[in-house]
Design a protein around this nucleic acid. Structure first.
Lengths: 217, 217
DNA sequence: TGGTGGCATACTGTATACGATTTTAGTATA
DNA sequence: TATACTAAAATCGTATACAGTATGCCACCA
């Protein structure tokens, strides 16, 4: 099965990555012509990509003034992690009711990839993608597509700010430990314990980010 | 302050209304040419409108096959109302901590509009919009923009299915009573009571809808 | 010198045109 | 009769072209 990719979808991916990685800084106006020239495409796919990114919350449009990479406040970071905590704990509850051993083994494999990442010299920029992959593997059995869609968006937005703090290495390894513990609780089908841990897992990450955020405004 | 409207945004509004009102039925392929001719615009704004509606969950795109009005399952209705219950209760908690008497008076006014609506002969199709207006007025003081955005989308999606059941008149007046009671609890700043009522308010509406849904598949 | 109005420029929004892909209908073959 | 293949039509995706709107600069006036 080959997957056909439209130009627009490629542009979406490229721009999303550039925004998440802060190659495009928050507040930067996104000139359609410039982006089109840079990517060797016409303005139409660029426009359509920007519209999709607006839906994801990464850019904002103003009529006749174009798109701007959104600038986010501390309050909003707080809100994002709060939403994640609520929605992810909820969906985890549904997932644990149905989760199979095979599902858990898949999650285990993702954690293996994580271990690689923590070795020195590894590309830490894939951390966000891998983090999402792990979390998603636990939520997928719930079958709650809408919720998963919302959570995915929240992760994308959170990643933008997680990447600011490279100094969060310590936090990464803490997260890693919590992931292992979380998976253990899932194997035990301990719904209450897993939800509780997940909540603090998400909220402490958020708080750590906000602390670092305030230090370097 | 005049509000400039682009063609695209008008098309979004028109198509959204058509989908919510079931003038465009679920599963219908949305031909870009046909829509463009019908609305006397070119295909570009139609495409861009469809992209936005995809983000709202009202249509789905398949590459080179175009957009289709999404068909929703009972499970998904269930999920939507579940999400509403969680998110709205959460945001109501934050809102009640800050809500002022002026905010509450605004909400009161919206309820007045509601009373008009329940009189015989009134246009029941604006019910969904008004319902959202009331709920929003209670949540707005929270200042949680992201959450409000998500909830708005959920309301739009729920409306599509609420409108199927015109026979839900009884349910409408029940909802109306609950709105008054909810507002009363907000005046009293009874956070726990308000959240509890809101939860059952949303979930019973959802369950009623699903019952009716199963009766007429 | 400070402010207002008008023009030039840059950029966005929309239309039109073209090329690519999918679907469909028809024909040939097993 | 059913299936595989081919050609044509329909539809989508993208490029190019034009029109409308915002922004900045400069002349002009108080």
């Amino acid at each position: 099965m080959i997957t056909r990719k439209t130009v627009t979808s490629s542009v979406v991916d490229i721009l999303r990555e550039k925004i998440i990685s802060h190659e495009i800084e928050a507040g930067t106006p996104l000139r359609q012509n410039a982006l089109a020239d840079e990517l060797n495409v016409s303005r139409i796919p660029v426009r359509e990509a920007l519209l999709q990114l607006e839906a994801e919350g990464l850019v904002e449009f103003a009529p006749h003034r174009g798109a701007v990479a959104t600038r986010i406040s501390v309050d909003e970071v707080n809100e994002l992690f709060g939403l994640r905590a609520i929605l992810e704990c909820d969906v985890l509850g549904y997932a644990l009711a149905k989760i199979t051993d095979e599902d858990l083994e898949i999650a285990q494999l993702v954690l293996k990839e994580f271990d690689e990442l923590l070795k020195p010299g590894a590309d830490r920029f894939t951390w966000g993608a891998l983090n999402w992959k792990f979390h998603r593997s636990l939520y997928l059995p719930s079958g709650r597509k809408r919720t998963l869609g919302l959570i995915r968006q929240l992760h994308t937005n959170c990643d933008r700010y997680l990447r600011i703090q490279i100094q969060l290495v310590a936090d990464f390894s803490r997260a890693e430990e919590e992931h292992h513990e979380l998976l253990r609780l899932c194997w035990a089908r301990d719904k209450r314990g897993a939800k509780k841990l997940l909540k603090t897992h998400i909220l402490t990450t958020g708080r750590g980010l906000i602390r670092a955020f305030k230090a370097v405004p």
